[in-house]
Structures are given as structure tokens and as C-alpha cells.
């Protein structure tokens, strides 16, 4: 039981580490419209190609 809780806590830690900070605070409805209006995507597109 203790180990089960430990694995869950480690899984949560992995989730926090790989999930962008911005997305962790988004609501579910915002998440579902993930692509075109995702703020991070727009921001990162600018970073990847500043002249676009």
C-alpha cells in the first residue's frame, strides 16, 4: 500500500516535470482546444521562427 502511494507520487512528480507550467493551470475546456489557440504554441512558434 505504501509503495503504491509512492509510485503514484512519483508519477505525479514526472507529470509535473514534463508538463509545461502554463498548461498545468489551464481549464479542461481550454485544453481540448489544444492546438490553434494554445498560448504556448503561439509563443514557441515565435521563438522557433522569430521572422514568421
Amino acid at each position: 500500500m505504501l509503495f503504491t502511494l509512492f509510485i503514484i507520487s512519483q508519477g505525479y512528480l514526472l507529470y509535473k516535470l514534463v508538463m509545461p507550467i502554463e498548461n498545468q493551470t489551464k481549464s479542461r475546456s481550454q485544453e481540448l482546444s489544444y492546438s490553434s489557440n494554445n498560448q504556448i504554441n503561439v509563443y514557441m512558434k515565435k521563438v522557433a521562427d522569430p521572422h514568421a
Binding site: 508519477g11 514526472l14 508538463m19 489551464k26 485544453e31 489544444y34 492546438s35 504554441n41 512558434k45 522557433a48
Partner: peptide, 19 residues
């Protein structure tokens, strides 16, 4: 650019399956 758009729903479901 192909990887810029990430399906966050899939992201959460898949990490849950791994755990």
C-alpha cells in the same frame, strides 16, 4: 513545426496509463 502542436489530452491519458 510538426511537433509544435501537442495533444494535451493524450499527454495526460498516456502518462496515466504508464503510471
Amino acid at each position: 513545426k510538426q511537433h509544435l502542436e501537442v495533444d494535451w489530452w493524450m499527454f495526460k491519458v498516456c502518462i496515466s496509463v504508464v503510471i
